[in-house]
Design a protein around this nucleic acid. Sequence first.
DNA 1: ATTAATATTTAGACAAATCTAAAAATTAAT
DNA 2: ATTAATTTTTAGATTTGTCTAAATATTAAT
Lengths: 219, 219
Amino acid sequence: MTRSEENYIKAIYHLSGGGMHSVPTNAIATQMDTQPSSVTDMIKKLSDKEYVHYKKYRGVHLSEKGINTALTIIRKHRLWEVFLADKLDFNWDEVHDVAEQLEHIKSEKLIDKLDEFLDFPKYDPHGDPIPGKNGELAQRSLQLLSAMKPEEEGICVGVKDSSVSFLKFLDKHNIALGDHIKILDVEEFDESLNILIESKKLHISKRIATNLFIKPIPA
Amino acid sequence: MTRSEENYIKAIYHLSGGGMHSVPTNAIATQMDTQPSSVTDMIKKLSDKEYVHYKKYRGVHLSEKGINTALTIIRKHRLWEVFLADKLDFNWDEVHDVAEQLEHIKSEKLIDKLDEFLDFPKYDPHGDPIPGKNGELAQRSLQLLSAMKPEEEGICVGVKDSSVSFLKFLDKHNIALGDHIKILDVEEFDESLNILIESKKLHISKRIATNLFIKPIPA
DNA sequence: ATTAATATTTAGACAAATCTAAAAATTAAT
DNA sequence: ATTAATTTTTAGATTTGTCTAAATATTAAT
């Protein structure tokens, strides 16, 4: 597996909803910021190696082998993100780019030991589940902040939009992973929320609320 | 800097005694297990980018810029080795190959944070000094086991020959980094040594003794 | 000081991953 | 059901790092 092949597999995995449906060539080109012709070339190679099923003009579908490969890469990516955030004090908006490099390091022992060192985390700093050694994916036991009702409480465990700008915004407003959140009330007018975050009052737009994952605390 | 360029710079650094003397093309080819013609090609590129000084048929000499680049790579390599050995419980004969990959990760912040996380180590698991952020290299305050005299004591802190076979050998005989060593006597016949290692008697050939670094404990 | 041996470079080719421009297939629109 | 618009593929070129084989320079040996 070359680095480039791995990146294609990963992109296809994400675009296909975890290998559920097939993906058009152009979507891959857009996602990876390359030309469609390059995608066609690479797809042929991946098809020869049986990572994907491919019929000309009909898009690509990940094979079983392709899905497992994708999960391995994603496992590595997310474990490294946890390492960077938990051990090296990176902010959650800084972990992605470095993890993008680290995910290509080849050593099974390294990943198993890292997993152990981090205490077998289930979720990465964005709240995304970390695939297990055998590819099993934990369900997110989460809900969006926007789906919560007054008086409900929870812990902020992830973001839906993991763009750098959103993560920067959260840092600026002192919203961090692990923060305790309680809903005070919901404005009827624009569905914005008044919340208590770590006991401090804060007003939050609907837009933001639909991008924050909360692990609910039962009342 | 491509990965390949970095590997050449590193090889030249080691072969030239830290940039002291110049290095013939063939030596680089041998060290890197490639063809001399490939070396010539790469050297031209490195020369264009001013990492090395190069006169046809006269070998290569690292420039100031080249030396600094080499030190940065070596710093990364050795810090990762410490991480693998100290935090992930790798044996010292297992750290090299993985560090060889990790040394190419590009992120200054990552390395600085890693350095801090590891408590600013001065030496890697083989006893080699770790270059500082500004390229300064600690002197080894070490001596070879073969240079020690009866009754002297010390701590085993490194190996000179870091080949996998030697490291495996040490593992097998339960000689580990940090072990306490006391010289009992030296055989006149073959200069082999009788030592006490962690209070257990052991007979060691001269060959081995010349490849183990000891930090002496003043009597 | 030639000649022989060795080291180094040049020239030309190749595989991987990409690109541009043109051709072909599919889909959408009338 | 054609035609137009869009998507996808093909063909051919480019860059990076490598190789082999041949040519050239340097060094060692007589």
